[in-house]
């Protein structure tokens, strides 16, 4: 094959993931311009390494892995660091209280959760962007892109238990932030909480 021609399968497997990789890059970088650069670099590297892609595995996860690695290397170089997530906290499990205090507050005033419909998308994206990178990556890969825990664990090179813990903490933090925003904006009444009944 001519070295300059696309390798078999790349266009069918990788290119359809362009929107998903772009969304992931946006969540990582927080800026459209940086995300576009990151996507180009990701696809270039993926194209060059296409013979290392294992058929039968998910191209989306493979592209996300490349994308995150490129992003993290760039971040190291620029010495920009997000909030450091303590790995000891990650290992401490999903927390002692299975009852979500945000839902307890919500149930008294808006049991259907209609306040979520009032929050504008940009505010939700800001809240996601404010999460530490480890939590943000886990939440985006699971809740937006629908990857299973095992694939996320392989992607971030961490045990499945750590991924579950990051998802738990990331989701709870997002829920707190969005609830507080909704109270501030008057989308929902502040509540001192109700008997959760559990």
């Amino acid at each position: 094959m001519d070295a300059s021609s696309p390798k078999p399968g790349f266009e069918e497997e990788a290119l359809p993931q362009l929107d998903a990789v772009y969304r992931f890059a946006l969540r990582l970088t927080g800026s459209a311009a940086e995300a576009e650069d990151l996507v180009q670099e990701t696809f270039l590297r993926a194209f060059k390494a296409w013979d290392q892609f294992e058929p039968g595995t998910r191209a989306k996860s493979w592209l996300f892995t490349i994308c995150r690695n490129v992003f993290l290397r760039g971040r190291e170089r620029s010495k920009r660091h997000d909030e450091i997530v303590s790995e000891s906290a990650d290992r401490s499990g999903p927390g002692p209280n299975p009852i979500n205090p945000v839902w307890v507050s919500t149930l008294g005033v808006d049991p259907e959760g209609d306040f979520f419909g009032s929050i504008v998308d940009d505010r939700i994206l800001e809240a996601i962007a404010a999460l530490p990178e480890e939590y943000r990556t886990a939440v985006v890969l699971s809740d937006i892109e629908g990857l299973p825990y095992a694939e996320i664990a392989a992607l971030v090179d961490a045990p499945v238990g750590t991924v579950k813990s990051r998802l738990f903490r990331g989701r709870r933090r997002l829920q707190e932030v969005l609830y507080e925003h909704a109270v501030e904006m008057g989308y929902i009444e502040a509540s001192s909480g109700v008997d959760d009944g559990v």
């Binding site: 362009l18 929107d19 772009y22 969304r23 946006l26 969540r27 576009e36 996507v39 009852i99 979500n100 839902w103 919500t106 149930l107 049991p111 259907e112 959760g113 979520f116 419909g117 929050i119 998308d121 940009d122 939700i124 994206l125 996601i128 939440v139 985006v140 809740d143 937006i144 989701r171 997002l174 829920q175 969005l178």
Partner: peptide
């Protein structure tokens, strides 16, 4: 109701993110 609110939360963040395309 806790399950329902978890679902509403997920719908909200999906709604915010999936509109973005290359």
């Amino acid at each position: 109701p806790h399950l329902h609110l978890e679902r509403r939360f997920r719908e909200a963040i999906q709604r915010a993110c999936v509109k973005e395309t290359a």
